[in-house]
Nucleic acid binder design. Structure first.
Lengths: 240, 240
DNA sequence: CATCCGAATATTGTATACAATGACTGGGCG
DNA sequence: CGCCCAGTCATTGTATACAATATTCGGATG
């Protein structure tokens, strides 16, 4: 079975910079998000020039912007490093994410449109199909993550605040969530799915408080799951 | 009477870029915040070069960063404009500010140190001295605003989240608040002062809910006061 | 007279050259 | 042997030159 509906709902950064500069920005950003440039990696302009095939000028502009967006740390006269996140900072990120996503859900509960509700419901249905069989899940992890993103993005849209979307996007991209979500257990993904169903119910019933409460739970549970993975992983590492 | 205690509490952006670039960044940013570069103003690189006395390279870097921080809008191949804010967007800003400052106050209530409490109390005392006499107030508006900033910054510090501070800083700088705060009525400033006193009480008693509630009120009231000024001002303008 | 086209001009985008700063290495000295 | 200093190399910061793209303005045409 192939699952390929709802393809339009994810809005990528509509940023526009001039051709070359934009390409460099995207390239570096992707490399950071995918983990190819690990946290702490020193990025030398010369290497990036080689990678992107243009001169240092657009590379430098991209680096400055990425630093302003907190993907990088730039030390004057010493260059750029991919930002590292302490566990305290990640806690902080999740705390704020719970606050902001909760707020978004509350706002969405009063404003969401029928078609947006439908989008979420459809995503939920597809998710449950994927979750039914272990084999299907393994083959469709990426699809599962995409559906997750669609659900959240739709809620943000419904909340109707551009700025809120911006803040949330950055919070989430910077937290290492995406990179590690593929390791979540089936049980964890099922829990997440159940949250989504309840969030849908809360939105449909137009109850801001309910939507906010369950959304916050959803985030806190995700944080817990993530820290569990991190712990296990570190334990593995230390055994080698 | 001169009021000049508490001078250390305001932390300016500790940003570091290389000498020239940093200077340009600060210059342009200041010009925007002070209103010298009004919203909608087109900023040509050539002019900024002349203003800052360096070449286009650092100017361009500063512009890109300011755009990433949402002070400017850059249209590719067409240059930079100082960002304009619709009333809807400003409403949105205040909504988010209430959420985040409320959260900060709640966090601060459980974590604030004695010396931080003392700082707030001292600022409150100085504020009330300024408010006692109309003449004093007129002469010390700037000082009043500085004390206000000290109180809020101290609470943010106490909340203990760097990222929260960053978000709030940008939200507030971008809202036109500072530019128009000088026009607030004495009654309005007194109300604000009373809020500060109650916030202090809530923090001292270690009550997160109380601190959050009164802080949110504080922001909503500020928003209301601001929109009143804007309305009156527009009415004046239309009479000319 | 209005409109459309195009050349001239202004402005931004990119590449390169040069300057300045920091890191690294090797030799001299205690 | 270790430390320090100086000189060299690597890397980033700035200025300038050139390319690409937008804007403006004048003239031709309906």
């Amino acid at each position: 079975m192939t699952v390929q509906f709802l393809s339009a709902a994810i809005k990528v950064h509509p940023k526009k910079m001039s051709k070359s500069s934009d390409a460099v920005y995207r390239t570096i950003r992707e490399s950071i998000l995918s983990g190819e440039f690990a946290p702490g990696t020193r990025l030398k302009e010369a290497e990036l020039v080689e990678l992107c095939g243009c001169s240092r000028t657009p590379v430098r502009e991209a680096l400055r912007i990425l630093a302003a967006e907190d993907y990088l740390t730039i030390i004057p006269n010493q260059g750029a490093e991919v930002k590292t996140w302490s566990s305290d900072e990640i806690d902080d990120l999740f705390q704020l994410r719970a606050l902001l996503e909760g707020h978004a859900a509350a706002q969405a509960a009063s404003r969401i449109s029928l078609s947006q509700l439908e989008t979420i419901q459809k995503a939920n249905t597809l998710m449950s199909e994927i979750l039914i069989q272990p084999a299907l899940l393994d083959a469709n992890i990426e699809e599962f993550l995409r559906l997750n993103q669609i659900i959240h993005n739709t809620i943000w849209e419904a909340a109707g605040s551009e700025r809120l979307i911006l803040m949330l996007t950055r919070l989430i991209e910077q937290a290492v969530v995406v990179k590690t979500a593929r390791q979540f257990s089936r049980a964890r993904l099922t829990q997440s799915h159940h949250h989504h169903i309840e969030i849908y119910a809360a939105l449909k019933s137009g109850s801001p408080s309910w939507a906010e409460a369950i959304t916050r739970s959803h985030i806190y549970a995700a944080k817990e799951a993530l820290s569990t993975i991190a712990t296990v992983k570190n334990r593995d590492d230390s055994l080698r």
